[in-house]
Design a binder for these strands. Structure first.
Length: 1168
RNA sequence: GGGCUUGUAGCUCAGGUGGUUAGAGCGCUACACUGAUAAUGUAGAGGUCCGUGGUUCGAGUCCACGCAGGCCCA
């Protein structure tokens, strides 16, 4: 094996990645990176399981890069980081996809297709794109265990979920109740939020809206509304766009802090005097300005303008507790009737629309339901034949008979014309029966109710109202908000504990934890667990038909026992041996099979499984436990944590990361279950990542055609550049505008520079025969100033990057590495050191100085490889292996740090304090700034850097400055090609000092008098400043100034070419002598020869002979150049590797070369 | 409607605890430099720091109210 460092003409990043990937897989580097850390502290990571029923997108590269970074970094730090992959397999998206594939709807399931067939199809579909996902995982370099993933549909996984549910059940945290949910009477089914979000669901419709008059009952509480004595009744006005809910009204909600006006006026339909209450802000909607000026008593029915008069203004809280008469007294509440028909406070009440008072019907609105429960307001319900309490609208969307009869009576009583005679069973709340709406006498139930209210002096205003309202995507009919049975997890029971434990979690960014998540926890409601679907984890609860007895099953062993009991009781069941643990892997716990088990109750009745499935978020939230499965031994002992081996030490997670949209999804379910089950957090650190948008800030979507294909992108740019760009561009929790131009830039700038730096190292190290020797590092004495400087910078880099990774701030880490490589290492250290590496005269010899240079550069590159490896694992590996493969055997033999065959197996370097030299860093900073200014001065006087100049002058205003610059004087001289640096102090008499106020200090001392004192300081003369500096204080205009009060600078030196910037001033002596010009010409000449060599394709070490045509030296500066060629003959030959430099007559094959005002004819030949 | 979040150069982003000339990279223009060369340097153009008020001697930074975008939820 060659000991040389590999050299590359150019770099092909995608190919590099492919080769490294093949190497990792062949050598099992990932497995080794985990197994090598056996016995080390564990760093636990949970993989949020993706669903493989869709193809992965570029945003998955982003999310997984974050995950990968910290797992790799913690491995470097010496932790053992196991990462079990996982697949989320249940849930609605899969079901919808299958329905689409098969061209069926939910109604067909169990009819045209059996549940068994359907679920089989789901099982196949959900892993449809697993190969693509695995492929992406590999190609982007995401290290996760794909060989032993947890899969949520597997029986062992589901069984663990059952066990967990049973724990909740036993703690009384799992219960059956109801909530108000979107429901489609036409389809006879509840609608998920997903179904409500389907395009076209929200339609603009014109509904009949009613402002109803609720008559206040006069009592002590309400007496203030009756002062002064009203002419008619006192009414609270409430607005609704669903008049059909008015018969079930049981409360009114007001905003506690909203202002309300009490006003006397007349009802526009009955013309009787009324006193009404409504939000002050909305007064103008109902009352005209004209009406305010008309005498109330003068009103006659038929008058166009209805007079009104504000009586008083009150606060919403004044109204709470007031009782009112039931608006449509058709039925009474079944229980707690004493609480019905009162005013309560609701936080959802606004004054945007309506009257600022919200009619509340607990059975038909989610807010209504919530506020009713809060104040113990009963719903208006009836008993069905079976004696169950049901709402007054049935599941077909029709009023129950008791209401229908009353409506029918009213229709007859008030002579309301309808398109056909309506029976008591005909009052559908919306047109679910396809009645002929074009019929001139067609009236919806809403309209009929409105008319009745008008007749009864209970409607203050009725009008058409246009708004958007959700419709069922299957039937196109309006949905109702309707009470539906559900199973709940009582998350509210441990709300405070959840919030408390949440405060111990490190959220990145913090606001997601305290704000988005924290606020949400405070307003938590119980977790609705039920889903009426087919492909999901079945709820393990069995009930008797009457619902009086129930059992929750926590394992298949328990189920088998219960089944055996049932069989013994004569209830037919499938073979219970199917439920033997050894058959677990082939058992199917899904529907319909799970529903075939029928149990027996204590009283001997058959028990059937509740048909609900469990919310798919329960599946993923339970992954910390279910990924391991239940351990039968521990289960039999009733162990409190009966999970298999991997569980131990892997809870809670140290780190998780997902998109911020998971806040109420996975982040919540993980947290909730951990708190409910084990009184623990589920994760200690969490990075929630932002969205990935296209380069213009739009969401990526197929419709817009702006979707970035992850495979193509990885293929084109290589994974490292994509990963690096994503992290470098913005902190991960910010939204990222993904721009391929940015990836290209990263590739060129960072990876290109790094590659060039390595190439430079390899080229010259090979020439000089340098090989890294870990046992023989250059001694500190051999290091030059620049070596010490870059090594100091390197220590700082290690510190910064380590801290950034530790704090989950990858962007900071990446930016620091990039700055180090591009600005410090490449553009300063290497550029200024080129001469040390490139010494043709001593090629092949490794002087102590050269070795120090190589050692330094090697260390910088090797450490860079390690620090960048979490983000750019491929390029880091490539770099590391190129640098170290040739010393591996020796390193292994001596057990030195570079003994590992992969950078990902190494141990993170520690910063070494003895290499840190902050003083030197400051000096170098001065050097860089001074050089920059001198370049600018040269530029403005048009003197190129090749032409040497005599000196630069530096005004010195403090001694530390001079000392710092002296340290790096040689570097400055070489960089800007000047012979000397002179320091000007006060003694020179050349300086003119100026003073600026030091506001940070003055502000604290003088406060409002800052302006005065700063004027004084700005007016100080040179002499005064010098005096102040000498004596340490100066009194002027009543201010006693000290040197700390001002910032002194020298901005000008009379008669010199000066540049000044941030208190730093440089003057350049631009006097050109013949000697200087000559030297400059010699350098120019070298440059032209080097260019020729390159153009002619000579190798770096080729020797040449140079011939210059004497005739071409006849004009212009020819004579001067001739002298230069003689005087600097040796210098020129050394630089250009020329064995000879001759001036000849009449050159035959000479090439014309431009040099200032000369055209030289030059010939160079290769010497063999 | 609520919670969270973002707004700084044409683009992508930096700008502890308030301090008086607001920076970087890319892009653009010009000129240089270079045996690392698809790199580099210097200079130039380019800014109502989203707006309006307020606090302060002093606000990109702190406060209030808006405007616009994003996410989550109603």
């Amino acid at each position: 094996m060659t000991e040389k460092y590999p050299e590359f003409g150019q770099i092909d990043y995608p190919r590099l990645a492919a080769e490294i990937l093949a190497y990792w897989e062949h050598e099992n580097i990932f497995e080794k990176s985990v197994n090598n850390r056996q016995g080390a502290h564990a760093f636990t990571f949970y993989e949020g399981p993706p669903s493989a029923n869709g193809t992965p997108g570029i945003h998955h590269v982003m999310a997984r890069t974050i995950k990968d970074i910290f797992c790799r970094f913690k491995t470097l730090q010496g932790y053992q980081v196991k990462r079990k992959g996982g697949w989320d397999t249940h849930g609605l998206p899969v079901e919808l996809q299958v329905e689409k594939q098969l061209g069926i709807t939910k109604e067909d399931i169990g009819k045209t297709i059996s549940i068994a067939e359907y679920n089989q199809k789901c099982r196949e579909t959900v892993m449809m794109y697993k190969d693509q996902w695995d492929d992406l995982t590999r190609k982007m370099g995401y290290w996760v265990d794909l060989k032993h993933p947890y899969i949520t549909y597997e029986p062992a996984y589901i069984e663990t979920l059952w066990w967990l549910l049973k724990q909740l059940y036993n703690k009384g945290l799992l219960y059956k109740g109801y909530t108000i949910q979107p429901y489609s009477p036409a389809a006879g089914t509840g609608l998920s939020s997903h179904e409500l979000n389907l395009p076209g669901t929200y339609k603009t419709v014109k509904d009949t809206s009613v402002v109803a008059q609720f008559k206040v009952i006069r009592n002590a509480r309400s007496e203030f509304l009756f002062q002064p004595e009203p002419a008619g009744g006192v009414f609270i006005l409430a607005w609704t766009t669903t008049p059909w809910t008015l018969p079930s009204n049981t409360a009114l909600a007001v905003g506690e802090n909203i202002r309300y006006t009490v006003a006397d006026t007349y009802n526009p339909y009955t013309h009787v005097p009324v006193r009404v209450v409504l939000a002050s802000q909305l007064l103008t909607k109902y009352f005209s300005e004209k009406g305010a000026n008309i005498d109330l008593a003068g009103y006659k029915p038929g008058d166009k303008v209805i007079p009104w008069k504000a009586v008083k203004e009150i606060q919403g809280s004044d109204l709470t507790g007031i009782r009112y008469e039931q608006l449509m007294p058709y039925l009474q509440p079944l229980h707690h009737a004493e609480n019905a028909f009162q005013v309560v406070a609701g936080d959802f009440v606004t004054t945007d629309e309506g009257t600022g008072i919200v009619h509340t019907s607990p059975t038909f609105g989610a807010d209504d339901f919530r506020v009713a429960r809060q104040y113990n307001i009963p719903p208006l319900t009836v008993r069905d034949e079976a004696g169950n309490e049901v709402p007054v609208v049935d599941r077909k969307g029709k009023f129950v008979r008791a209401i229908g009869e009353k409506l029918k009576e009213a229709v007859e009583k008030y002579g309301i014309k309808t398109h056909r005679v309506l029976a008591a069973d005909d009052f559908y709340v919306k047109n679910y029966t396809n009645e002929d709406e074009s019929h001139p006498d067609y009236k919806s139930t809403d309209v009929i109710i409105s008319i009745i209210l008008k007749e009864e002096n209970k409607a203050f205003r009725v009008e058409k109202y246009e708004h958007t309202y959700p419709h069922c995507w299957r039937t196109d009919k309006p949905v109702l908000y309707y009470p539906l049975d559900s199973w709940f997890i009582r998350t509210t029971a441990l709300k405070d504990r959840m919030a408390e434990l949440n405060r111990t979690i490190n959220w990145k960014p913090e606001s997601t934890g305290t704000g988005r998540f924290g606020n949400w926890l405070e307003n938590l409601v119980d977790w609705n667990l039920s889903r009426s679907r087919y492909w999901g984890t079945p709820l393990p609860v069995w009930r008797t038909a009457d619902g009086r007895e129930e059992k929750c099953i926590g394992s298949i062993d328990e189920l088998r026992e219960e089944v055996n009991k049932a069989i013994a009781a004569g209830i037919e069941n499938p073979n219970p041996d199917l439920l033997l643990r050894e058959n677990l892997h082939q058992l199917d716990l899904h529907r319909p099979y799970v529903d075939e088990w029928v149990l027996v109750s204590e009283t001997g009745k058959p028990m059937y499984r509740e048909s609900d499935l469990v919310d798919v978020w329960f599946d993923s939230g339970a992954m910390p436990y279910a990924q391991w499965g239940l351990n039968p031994g521990l289960l039999a002992q009733n162990h409190s944590q009966p999970f298999n081996e991997g569980w131990n030490g892997a809870f809670p997670a140290d780190f998780i990361s997902e998109g911020v949209d998971q806040t109420r999804g996975w982040f919540f379910t993980l947290h909730a279950l951990a708190v409910l089950l084990f009184d623990s957090v589920a994760f200690k650190n969490v990075v929630s990542t932002g969205l990935l948008l296209d380069k213009d800030g739009n969401k990526m979507s197929k419709r817009l055609g702006n979707v970035i294909n992850p495979f193509e992108t990885l293929e084109k740019y290589g994974p490292d550049a994509v990963r690096w760009y994503m992290i470098e561009n913005a902190p991960p929790w910010e939204n990222l505008r993904f721009n391929l131009a940015g990836v290209e830039e990263v590739q060129r700038k960072f990876f290109g520079t790094l590659f060039n730096t390595y190439s430079f190292f390899a080229l010259y190290a090979n020439i000089d025969g340098y090989i890294k020797d870990e046992l023989n590092n250059s001694s500190p004495e051999a290091l030059t100033l620049l070596d010490r400087w870059i090594l100091s910078r390197l220590q700082e880099l290690i510190t910064t990057v380590t801290r950034a990774y530790n704090e989950y701030e990858p962007t900071r880490a990446v930016r620091a590495i990039q700055e180090f490589v591009c600005d410090h290492l490449s553009n300063w250290y290497v550029r200024l050191n080129r001469k040390r590496f490139w010494q043709p005269a001593t090629r092949g010899e490794l002087s102590a100085d050269k070795k120090a240079a190589y050692d330094t550069l090697f260390n910088c590159l090797a450490v860079t490889a390690q620090l960048m490896s979490p983000v750019a694992p491929f390029m880091a590996e490539w770099l590391y292996k190129n640098l170290t493969d040739n010393i591996r055997q020796k390193a292994k033999a001596h057990n030195t740090p570079l003994r590992f065959e992969s950078v990902h197996l190494t141990t993170l370097v520690q910063p070494e304090a003895q290499y840190r030299d902050e003083e030197l860093e400051k000096s170098m900073d001065y050097a860089q700034r001074i050089c920059s200014m001198v370049h600018a001065l040269r530029k403005s006087s048009k003197i190129k850097v090749r032409t040497p100049l005599h000196r630069i002058l530096l005004p010195v205003t403090d001694d530390r400055f001079a000392a710092r610059v002296r340290m790096v004087e040689n570097i400055i001289k070489a960089e800007v090609n000047v012979k000397t640096v002179e320091y000007l102090d006060d003694a020179s008499g050349l300086l003119i000092k100026k003073a600026k106020p030091n506001f940070a200090r003055l502000g604290k001392m003088y406060g409002a008098r800052v302006k005065d004192v700063s004027a004084v300081i700005q007016g100080l003369s040179h002499q005064e400043i010098v005096q102040l500096e000498k004596s340490g204080s100066l009194k002027k205009h009543g201010f006693e100034l000290t040197p700390d009060d001002l910032i002194v600078s020298t901005e000008d030196i009379p008669g010199w070419l000066v540049a000044s910037e941030n208190q730093l001033t440089v003057a350049l002596d631009v006097t050109l002598t013949q000697e200087l010009k000559q030297e400059g010409l010699a350098r120019d000449f070298v440059n032209r020869i080097q260019n020729l060599r390159k153009d002619m394709g000579f190798a770096v070490l080729d020797k040449i002979a140079i011939e210059v045509d004497r005739k071409s030296l006849a004009n212009g500066d020819g004579a001067l150049l001739m002298d230069a060629l003689n005087h600097y003959n040796e210098y020129i030959r050394t630089e250009t590797q020329a064995l000879s430099l001759e001036i000849c007559e009449g050159l035959a094959h000479a090439m014309p070369v431009q040099l200032d005002n000369l055209v030289l004819n030059i010939n160079i030949k290769l010497c063999s």
